[in-house]
Amino acid sequence: MSTNESILEVTDLRTSFFTEGGEVKAVDGVTFDVPAGKTLGIVGESGSGKSITAMSILQLISHPGKIKGGEIKFRGKNLLDLSEKEMRKIRGNQISMIFQEPMTSLNPTYTVGQQIRESYKIHQGLGKKEGSKRAIEMLKLVGIPSPEKRLDQYPFELSGGMRQRVMIAMALACKPDLLIADEPTTALDVTIQAQILELIKELQDELGMSVVMITHDLGVVAETCDYVAVMYCGKVVEYADVRTLFKNPRHPYTVGLLKSLPRSDRDQEELTPIKGTVPSPDEMPVGCRFAPRCPFATNLCHEKLPSLDDVGDGEQIRCWIYTDEWNGDPGVKVYEPERTTEG
């Protein structure tokens, strides 16, 4: 696909939740690559399965969820073949994760220092003194003022932005190769969001890590990512480099998202929303998941699920329009950039 070496290759990942109402296929055959040293954005609306995909990579899925199949190759090794003990050596060491709400993902009963030291203790066997020294270095790295003092503070004593910085310091403590950031700035104000995103970008350059950025915010994607996977109802519908995705989006869902988005950088006459709502798991369409809301859908779309196909230039699309089997209007234009007026 891409000439770059991939640090993570996810193939046909399937994660389901087995509830009283039956099986809910939260992640349903997800495939994507994360090129080494780059940032992959996984974007989608609520219920698209983007967070479950992230949790599946680190195998943080608990009952009633279960990873049913697929492959998660990290530096050529399938993580799903590893034992829980081997997985623990990877979590927080080679692959780290930061979460949306730093208050609920930091332990309120331990000080900042204790929490950062923990990963040095587990992965590198460092004692308190050496651990503290490294923790102070990390806090400095993420731009926390007077780090020596912060070490003995509890999470509640910090502001939201500072807490997220502590989370990042913890996640990066062991200099991981891959950082998974699950909506890292969603709970923050925009001025703080700008600080945190810039910080992640700078640290990525310094440490040479790869990042998986999970977000619902297309602005964040455009700003931080090199490649993007757009998810809808547990499936990747479009995978492209970030410029292609925004300049020449091809999947009707991606186009719909962009047209629904109110912009702060220019005036828009009208928003064109995607009609209808995301189908509930128990009435998932048999054909293309997006067909009931797609303005271009034909019988084919309603009856048969399209596959995620290469369309050249490393781009992949899951849509009948771009296949030989397309039986609708042959001249259909999914995206017409001239329709938006620059303000």
Binding site: L218, V220, A222, R243, F246
Partner: peptide
């Protein structure tokens, strides 16, 4: 100005001089 400059814009070519505000409210 800082608030407007901080908003991520859904356009990878958008160039901006971002004003980073220090600290929190």
């Amino acid at each position: 100005k800082a608030l407007l400059s901080a908003i991520p814009v859904p356009d990878p070519d958008h160039n901006k001089d971002r004003i980073f505000l220090q600290g929190d409210v």
